[in-house]
Design a binder for these strands. Sequence first.
DNA 1: TTCGGCAACGGAAACGCTTCCGAAACCTGC
DNA 2: GCAGGTTTCGGAAGCGTTTCCGTTGCCGAA
Lengths: 339, 339
Amino acid sequence: MTQSSQKINMADVARAAGVSMATASRALNNDYGVSEATRRRVLAVAEELSYVVSPEASRLAGGDTGRVAVVVPHISRWFFAALLEGLESVLRAADLDVLLYHVDGIEDRHDFFHRLPARRKVDAVVVLAFPVGEEEQRRLELMGVTVIAAGGQHAPYPNVSIDDETAGRQAMDHLLFLGHRRIAMIAAVDPDQPDEVQPSGRSNAYYAALRDAGVPIDERLVVTVDWGGAQGADAMAKLLSQPEPPTAVYAHSDEVALGAIRTLRRAGLRIPEDMSVIGIDDHPVAELSDLTTVRQPVREQGELAGRMLLSILGGEDTDHDVLVPTQLVIRGSTAPPRA
Amino acid sequence: MTQSSQKINMADVARAAGVSMATASRALNNDYGVSEATRRRVLAVAEELSYVVSPEASRLAGGDTGRVAVVVPHISRWFFAALLEGLESVLRAADLDVLLYHVDGIEDRHDFFHRLPARRKVDAVVVLAFPVGEEEQRRLELMGVTVIAAGGQHAPYPNVSIDDETAGRQAMDHLLFLGHRRIAMIAAVDPDQPDEVQPSGRSNAYYAALRDAGVPIDERLVVTVDWGGAQGADAMAKLLSQPEPPTAVYAHSDEVALGAIRTLRRAGLRIPEDMSVIGIDDHPVAELSDLTTVRQPVREQGELAGRMLLSILGGEDTDHDVLVPTQLVIRGSTAPPRA
DNA sequence: TTCGGCAACGGAAACGCTTCCGAAACCTGC
DNA sequence: GCAGGTTTCGGAAGCGTTTCCGTTGCCGAA
């Protein structure tokens, strides 16, 4: 049994290597002031004894925790998961551990900011894709650590995200360019977020695009639903029940768009002949469903946020806000309206 | 500024409450041997001073770390994310912190088991949905902590998962019941996993079901691809290029099935009239795509694993293996073959 | 009144490291 | 050969808790 290895500490290693603990510590941490020969010897002994420093003791004595808290409102939705994946990869590459905090729903969220379970446990916190309210900011401040954000909007912290309004414009302009004039919008809101802080760039884009195109706005063509495919399906039904349905639908996300498509299919309508549909995100299934969309690089945003954090932690200056570009991806769900 | 709160330690609290550190510690930890009045006083002072114990110091002196490592091969795939979500929710409810380790690809995986970055940092590790090789088991043992698994197969650890073979049988039996005889299988393997440890329950089900139904096996109807929608699409194309294509397709997962459907649509074939398609998992988009599938409760598996871990950590006995039931969900992608 | 027992509490020794500071050993150029 | 500088290294003081023992004070029983 290697059970005994549990009890080995730095003193043992130092003794076995014939050096003091001070030197052993420096060697193990690749610190300055140890000859190459000594370092190698210490490292060899450590390896031999299968020794690893106790993070607890190390942190108690030394400085930072080597951990960062990541706060996410959802895990199993692709967007959030992809963001997390990108972030985790760069943080772990930098030997930072990721503490995952899923704030599931408004109550859980309140609890998180109130109890601050990550307090004293991390060097930084990354807020993933949700807007932080003012009171919540004040709570976060109590932690006294660096905070950055990714994937969200209007964050008061250093932030990487896309420009939602631009993305929305790319989608709308595509539909307009194809000749559509009766364009509906299925706006999606996250029921888990307080209303006041909901970003609205994707909605703004709708109105701005129509205005710029000189198309009058018909509020009956705007449906707001909770985020999700099923809700998108319902919204589409609502749109189809109107006396003068749209010829195209702009959905705030691909999932919502897919829901809309299901309704259209069930109604016997063909896509894109009878109705054009466009989403945002470029969710993996968008490609499988031949859905035209606006792509945003999600994993990259996570990675970028990770690098941003690393450099802030390293004391470097960085851009406060990084905007990553989005891009129209034309597939088979959009076409000019029937003449 | 509450900056000063950073420096407060238990000694300060003890002093302010007029007790010794020993008592303060006991009060803060709800330990035995403190009068109710004293405890309340200490708690009040702590709250007042906005004090929280230093986890590092606490762990150094005391026992466990209050953390558990979760190892996942993928994050942005729905199945893994949902599993993680369930697990995280119960662990965090039990005040355990979740350390996330994404082993991305075979190299990263090797590195993880070799360096054991979670060593000495956690009380337990949860292996999420991937088979652990023998050498890897040996490495894990070095950590000297509890290990459990979820969502995977044949784990040598306490485990919660579905019975893949049963799930596969449910899918196959449905197709057979509908009258299909030429049934193809699109088998999916994870390119990130070593071949030897790939579970094959879903494949076994295919052969067993056909055998039991007295249908001769045609190996040309079996296509094995890497996991993923695009690969499913390719596989379907391969199947369609045969002189005598199948009348139904059994895909190892919904994503793969969706890929197959895209190919079928592009080929102008109707589903289910010209071809039945069935998947496994009940991915959220399966509903949106009207895909018949075999549902497995994913989040629940994560939660179950969490509870299992909790009771093991609590010293209780638990079932070593928990199998959660799967269920056929009939939607619009399957029908009897054309006469 | 005395004494055993118990609840409440305090002193102080770990826990395993990092790092300040000083000492020793080595090198350089003259 | 030596002053002065540069490395390399060791001693030891923390870091902020938990917990083992002991002590004190109080109560009821003898």
